[in-house]
Design a protein around this nucleic acid. Sequence first.
DNA 1: TTGAAAGCGCTAACAA
DNA 2: TTGTTAGCGCTTTCAA
Lengths: 335, 335
Amino acid sequence: MTITIYDVAREANVSMATVSRVVNGNPNVKPATRKKVLDVIERLEYRPNAVARGLASKKTTTVGVIIPDISNVFYAELARGIEDIATMYRYNIILSNSDQREDKELQLLENMFGKQVDGIVLMSDRVTNDLLHMIERSPVPIVLAGTIDATNRIASVNIDYYQAAYEAVTRLIQNKHQRIAFVSGSLSSTINRAFKYTGYEKALEDAGIAIDESLVIESDATYDEGMAAFNHLQKLANPPTAFFAGNDELAIGLIHGAQDRGVVVPEDIEVISFENSKLARMVRPTLTSVVLPLYDIGAVSMRLLTKYMNKEHIDEKTVVLPHRIEERQSLKKPI
Amino acid sequence: MTITIYDVAREANVSMATVSRVVNGNPNVKPATRKKVLDVIERLEYRPNAVARGLASKKTTTVGVIIPDISNVFYAELARGIEDIATMYRYNIILSNSDQREDKELQLLENMFGKQVDGIVLMSDRVTNDLLHMIERSPVPIVLAGTIDATNRIASVNIDYYQAAYEAVTRLIQNKHQRIAFVSGSLSSTINRAFKYTGYEKALEDAGIAIDESLVIESDATYDEGMAAFNHLQKLANPPTAFFAGNDELAIGLIHGAQDRGVVVPEDIEVISFENSKLARMVRPTLTSVVLPLYDIGAVSMRLLTKYMNKEHIDEKTVVLPHRIEERQSLKKPI
DNA sequence: TTGAAAGCGCTAACAA
DNA sequence: TTGTTAGCGCTTTCAA
């Protein structure tokens, strides 16, 4: 039924080895022979079977991608970066959602090992010991994208979240704020807890501002929780005048929460976000935000993975991409 | 190096066939034997090689997903629906972006055939003849998700876009509007041209309102183009008082375009969208919108595909999901 | 430059 | 209930 390399060999009066050579671009084939084989391939509409090839060569030209949730713009942007570079290097991608659950991450890894992927890009809020252990025992290279491994043992691509948070909060302090809230996503996320929160604290400390734990809100990082956080903070005896939001949705929730109560941004309160998705321009006022280069993190992760898969020399297994702050309207110009 | 079914067989003193049986849950194995094998599998950390299995069984338990752009929330939501059901049926997904380019769609299909996927879910704005031809010659079942095949020959999952558009525009007419603009995405998209636009026209016609082509704007369906469309339409001698937007981004662009010019929604103009992504609630005013059940379209497509792959009986190869209008603030209550 | 042949790790008759 | 054996379609030595 299906055309195999044998059929082509027979029709072209050559051995299957020769057909294999022309299919794989091996130069050791006489041009005339090559042409003859190519003609038969076209006539028979022969299509190499990647599964058989994978079994024989032990390479599937497929990489696994484990992502918390592809329907989340944040990760979708990362995934696109990964996919583009994968395509460029002729890899296909097996994409699976983990929903941030460690048990699923573990099971997904196991599943991908079984599928004989050539490498894996993993995104996770928290690299647990079990996960770390499994990654270290992986039969194929694994790169962490936008994901922190506190032990620094696994290859990864990130920005300096700590420094970025520090700068964001400092920018708020520059505008003379003393009461600065941090409305964060889950603090069980390493990036949020160990970097953004720490950067926030350090910036306040360096400015001689006392930390007030009541100004730190942990949330699900959604729009609704942003609104709820604003309402909650507004009821404080001494409410904040500036907000450092963990992501764009939270920031927009904060702004709409304020607007619904007649509080004007940036006149009455100021907001800085941490993401800069395309949502940042789709609110009024537009969001000043730390620029998280998600696409690039994905792309660079995949590029790094190709180096591991090709056993190329790796300069740095932990790459830190640059970040910056995009000034828009939710923050007044520096005074 | 790697543990194979042979190693397990040897260690357990059984034949590889028996190991294969226990791995595949074949009931024809004596419990004692099964246990013995299972123990060895655990001790050796044996992991079945899916590639070898795929070659021998001609089933890879992976399905291909061709999507225009995973970083677009619209498609990401669809993809999530597909992935969830795929996981439920123990399939993995190979995800590729086509960027709506026919040449890439064709090439991606070819690539997936080569990878021996068991089935494919395809999303595309426009099913060209070449694409249709390739789908019909596919060695594996293909289901279209949120994608129209005008010939109705290919299995697909959609809503009734024509009817939905008709209802949306009728809703605008109900609020006494006579000058109704349609700000659409690309009209080379079958859904936009043959259904939404047609529904728009029919609604106007049924209400005795003359079609004014200057009120129909074709765009890239982005936020910026929504704003640009508003500005353009506002300059007309007789500008529209109501807008039917092709998607949420366009609707938000329209609203912000209006607000930037001091035009108030819904007092001065009214807007209805067609998507109802989570963005719909993240604007002020919130968007009244036709609800496009993207997740469900993805999920149902994948479910339908499993039926084809299992050669189950198919009731309807063309499924049409229900839709409705979610009333929010960008439209006044019916008069 | 080409061919022969031995796997790759597994499934699936078929036989026992 | 278990084992034997022939592939699945290809890559990759090794020889010629």
